[in-house]
Design a protein around this nucleic acid. Sequence first.
RNA 1: GCCGGAGUGGCGGAAUGGCAGACGCGGCGGACUCAAAAUCCGUUGCCCGCAAGGGCGUGUGGGUUCAAGUCCCACCUCCGGCACCA
Length: 930
Amino acid sequence: MPRYHPSSIEPKWQEWWDAHGTFTTPRLPAGRKTYILDMFPYPSGDGLHVGHPEGYTATDIVARFERMRGTTVMHPMGFDAFGLPAEEHAIRTGTPPRESTERNIATFTRQLKMLGFSYDWGRVLATTDPEYVRWTQWIFLVLFDTWFDHATQKGRPIAELPIPAEVTAKGAGAIASYRDDHRLAYQSEAPVNWCPALGTVLANEEVIGGVSERGGHPVIRLPLRQWMLRITAYAERLETELAGLDWPASIKKLQCDWIGRSTGAEVDFFIPPASGADEAFAAWMSRRSESGYPSKPGADVLRIYTTRPDTLYGVTAMVIAPEHPLLDALTTTEQRPSIEAYREAASRKSDLDRTDLAREKTGVFTGSSVVHPLTGRPVPVWVADYVLASYGTGAIMAVPAHDERDYEFARSFGLDVVTVIEPMEGQASGNGLFAGEGRAIDSGPYTGLSTRDFIAKVGADLEATGLGRPATNYKLRDWLFSRQRFWGEPFPILHELDEAGHPTGSIRALEPHELPVSLPVLTDFKPGDTPDPPLSRSPADWLFVDRDGKRYRRETNTMPQWAGSCWYYLRFLDPHNTERFLDPAIEKAWMPVDLYIGGAEHAVLHLLYSRFWHKVLYDRGHVSHPEPFGKLVNQGMILGEMEFTGYRSPAGGWVSAEKHGDGDVASKVPHDQVEKHGEHFVLRDAPTTRVESRAYKMSKSRGNVVNPDQVVREFGADSLRLYEMFMGPLEATKPWSTSGVSGVRGFLDRCWRLVVDERADEIALAHQVSDTQPSDDDLRELHRTIDKVTRDIEGLSFNTAIARMMEFVNYCTPLDRRPRAILEPFVTILAPFAPHLAEELWQVLGKPAPVSIATWPAVDERWLKDDSVEIPVQVQGKLRGRVVVPADADADAMKAAAVADPKIAELLAGKTIVKVVAVPGRLVNFVIKG
RNA sequence: GCCGGAGUGGCGGAAUGGCAGACGCGGCGGACUCAAAAUCCGUUGCCCGCAAGGGCGUGUGGGUUCAAGUCCCACCUCCGGCACCA
């Protein structure tokens, strides 16, 4: 009768833990601490996906394991609840986003609790909670109040920003705008993708080929006032401080590439006047050698950035971006119409079009030339959209002979290709293009220098003559931080209005005590005819504010979804604090996060943004450690069940998979109609017809989504947890298999029967359970299991830990007597993996609950050693026999035992032994001759 | 194109340079049962062989080593990410 029924024991123990506060974390750790964090989910309307419990189970096992080892564990959960889906749902249905979000959070909470995770639910938060929004806005105020001091590489209060005398001279307004220009949070006109037909701004990835992804409506790029965060100021620290983190090398590299540091030189090319060019150039040169290189280029120079200043003598054109500020000035009258047309066309293209589709390079000659600073020769200036306005100086020197892109451009427009670098010996130089490093030729005084020496020398020379300087650039851009959306955090910023109600351009931040700025009540979430954010249609009593006799309008953009997830790990530590965002003593005690597990899709953005905010908070003294996440692990994706796909021709007959064409129709083939034939899978009834076998990403459209609720109903939460851990290595991508779940369920059933008498009417101990002393074999088996499971949890190798526990159960099942002395420790180590079952078995064994915080059993090293071992004997590297020797036998003893083996003796008879390799405890190998 | 990651039985996977295939699924056989399910026991890489035994095996081709799934070189396939950053 009392079979294993997860559906009754799981809710029972969840309620017990809840009622007893088993996993409540104290304010401050007592002794050793560990902070184990999951990437919190976006509560989508679809509910939990089987991908979520993968990482969550892994962290839960570690959290429970650490608790049992006496560590104080911080293991919280919350919700990243702002976001687009809720807003689009609101537009479609009129349901306020807060309502649908709260409903979704309730579903997620139910599902997470159903899986028995040991979160301290007293700390749960959602980024949409007004009290959370309050502190997100407060951190924005910190960013707004901070400037970056490049000399010390540190963020400092804006009040400490040195104001140049000439700015001070212009009065308070100039000082204020000088400050605004240096804040980490600043406003800027940035182009956005505006789709008039849809009445909304689109993200870059929502625009395909110049039209909207949905509906195919035209999209234009429109400059719009945006909030930006000066993450570029921290580029260097974000890169160098990666080194100390225990993160996967691949993630570090991804971040490093994203930051994209490069070194080279900036060089100014003189823009000559219409007449007297030579004299003007000479005068400019001499001015520059006295004044040095100015930090901002004047209107008389075109400033470029290059990573290869050693190719300066190979420049045959200058190319500037269509948005370059000097484009107008450089355009001659006769070229103006075509330049205008080009610029117009470029402005309509999204970034994606400009990069992805424009394989063939386009461009237009401006009609003007600039003067080469080293040769004094004129260089024609072109405009082309392969040069990006947002990188470097928005202008380049084109060296067709030594840069692939410039080479393509030169070929399209017939520009000269001048070779100035020769490959070092042994390197091949192909078709006039050589982008590698080498030795300079035809380069004036630099001829003969290697690339490295050339760059060093020319950098120094340019600096000495004021024509250029060595420079560093980053691919990383400042973070576009505003969205024209409703469902996000409002900015704590007011725009001053004049008498007529127009913005004066002056802004002021709210005081911390005025926070939070809550979202107004809107009934209409639909986008309008202009890119104005929905909040611009807020009721006047929200929108307009009077302060100190002045009238202000609130900022109506909202923050992006990333904002809330940038600091949630900090708020978890002190979630109910109404005085501060986080008590410093608490922060100091718990930070940094010791283990952070989540999907690799956040490898760059979330993790980079969080690190950036954290560093600002660190610089401003609000946190004590420069990095938030010490150790990071990415769980792999869980794919749908393996599928076989066959192809049918339009006529209906099967087509072998490797020959199928566009007209053929793919169809799913049941597993039992397929068999393996050599390298490939084929149809059982038509063995020459190959079928594809593959697991696909779970998606609604493919219909291969596995629902956790259903798995729990059918197999139980412990089975789901255990299966997800048993599938394979945590980091690997792996396909779902329902029979795999039932296999793991079978293991839990066997654990149950190990302890419980399944045939009794009431819950009772199995009659084999005994109080007798365990045998040596029993203890060996137990301690080896404890040892392996302990080490595997430490190494996050849950699949092999589970395999070892299965071996233990396989060992115990046939025993006539199962000593409690080995069953009880086993139940203890099972607890982190299958906590509900373990609690139940613990109770059946008559132990006081909860096993969840029982002491982790110690390994007795004595039982890890064998008295004797069976070792393989090889001849010529091939396995020829096995001998049993004492575990501590030395090489000679092993060799003697091997030679004594009749089979080995036979093989060695008449041969000369050239060498014997004997590794104690491992093997013996005879190398023979003759 | 560039950068990662991975290729091991029918399937998921295991293996500090030292017995390849632990553990699980699936298959096969047996016990229990009137029967079935459930459970328990055994077996299961491929080929030759009645057997004893032998041969072949970790994507392909080379190499290092007494010994390679593991290290080195070249290549193939799949998956993921990035994509004109001068």
